[in-house]
Every structure is written in structure tokens, then in C-alpha cells.
Design a protein around this nucleic acid. Structure first.
Lengths: 121, 121
DNA sequence: CCAATCTATCGTCAATCGACGATATGCGTT
DNA sequence: AACGCATATCGTCGATTGACGATAGATTGG
């Protein structure tokens, strides 16, 4: 059925599907320009921001609200009530698992183990 | 139109929409459990892997091929021909921009600037 | 040369996403 | 009490995604 790679000795990935789903959900939360933009705005002005995220993003209020809901649901941001507004801010640590995976990838890249690749596409 | 946050002095985000789209595309490439799984497998066995990604993922061959196509299109992986198989491996640096954003977020978290949050949901 | 193997592509179908306007809610202000 | 503001939710519509089987290409092995 194959060769070309180490035959994957030992127990496969520990409990892959669980973490896979978790990481995928985090990535999915970021998988839209508007949501990336929101995260970046919240990152720049490290303090929270209220309603003018709507102006910033440039989509309808209901649409932005939906994007905020998705980010909140993924735990990426949280909202503090400040009537009549809500101040959103980045939530600590929520993205850590995804960041960890990406760091691993970059780390491996940095190791310079990649041979000159005769790529196929 | 609001208060609660620093009024965003200086030029806004440099050329936001471009980077936003780029980062979102990267995140989107990872926004599925099967694709996360592929990345993790390629990360574990640092050498490339051939066809048995299909077995590993547990979906139909055509479906896995599609996921590989998406990852390849995003530049996350690359394939080296090794007839009649193709050995996939993580592509250097492709995920760096996303990793950078996430690092920034985590960095800010680490700064401990987040007050105890009376959250709203 | 024929069969087997690995991979990519196509067509299809259900499910989900993203956008919007309209509307509801909740709370200060007048 | 009535209004205005910021936000959330609902319903809808078109576009995209994810899954699959079927099929086509390419190459190795007999």
C-alpha cells in the first residue's frame, strides 16, 4: 500500500480527531477577512472597542454582529458590557492551541530539513 | 460615535484588506479537521508521506485529494513526485504570516493587561 | 502489452456560510 | 412615557463547501 515514508511506528496520533476538531474550529473562526480584521483591530488598540467595529469593517451591522458572535463562540474574543455599548477584547489564550501548532510547523521549517524540492505543480 | 477606546490615532491599518484576505485564506486552509490532521501527520513524520494519507484520514480518496489540493493551493504543503506516488511535505514558511498574528495575540495575552472581565455572555 | 496502482478531476447532492434588511431587546435620555 | 442608540436575532437568498462514486491519466510490474 505504500512506502516512501517511515512506517509510522507506535500508537498513531493520541486522540487525534478531538484535537483536530478543536484546532479546526479555531482556524475556522479566523477563516474570514472580516474576522481577521476584527482581531487585528482589537490587537492594535489593545484596549477594547465598542460599536465602531461596524464602521471599521464596513459591512452591515447585522453581519458584523454575526462575525462577532462567531469569534465569541470560538472564545477568541469576549465582550464587556458598558451600556449601552459592548467593549470587545481579545480573550486570553483561546488561540494558544492553534498558535502552538503553527509554531511547531515554523520550527520545523527553521530546522532547514527541507531538501531542494522538485515540486509537482 | 463612541468612546471607551483610544481614538485610533495615526494611520489605521496599513493596507488591511489585502493582508486580511491573505491571512483569512491561510486560516481557511486549516479550517477543517481533515486538513489539520494532514498537517499534523506531516509534522510528526517529518519526512513526507505518500498515499496512505488516505488511510490515515479515513475519508474517500477523492475527498482526501481535494483536501490536499486545498492545502497545496494555500501553499501549506507541497508534493514531490515519486512515481507512482506523491510525497507531500509541509512547505516552508507558508504559515508564517498567520503564525505571526497568533504570536502577537498570545504576546498581548502574556502581558497580562486583561482586567477581570465582567463578561456578557 | 495488459493489469494494477496511485492520483486528479468531474458531477452531484445536501449542508453550511455570508450577506442583508427587518425586527426585537435593553437601557439611558429627554 | 416616549424616543434614540447599540446590539442581537430572524428569515431569506445565493454562493460555497464537503462528501462521495465514477472516471480518466500516468506509470510501474508482470
Amino acid at each position: 500500500m505504500s512506502a516512501c515514508c517511515p512506517p509510522a511506528t507506535g500508537p498513531r496520533v493520541p486522540d487525534a480527531t478531538l484535537d483536530d476538531a478543536r484546532l479546526a474550529r479555531l482556524a475556522r473562526a479566523l477563516a474570514h477577512p472580516a474576522r481577521i480584521h476584527i482581531v487585528r483591530v482589537l490587537l492594535e488598540r489593545r484596549s477594547c472597542i465598542g460599536c465602531d467595529l461596524v464602521d471599521e469593517v464596513g459591512l452591515a451591522q447585522s453581519t458584523v454582529s454575526e462575525h462577532l458572535r462567531i469569534l465569541k463562540e470560538a472564545g477568541v474574543i469576549s465582550g464587556r458590557i458598558e451600556r449601552p455599548r459592548i467593549c470587545y477584547s481579545l480573550a486570553p489564550g483561546a488561540l494558544a492551541p492553534l498558535a502552538a501548532l503553527l509554531s511547531s510547523v515554523l520550527e520545523q521549517d527553521a530546522a532547514g530539513i527541507w531538501p531542494a524540492l522538485p515540486v509537482e505543480d
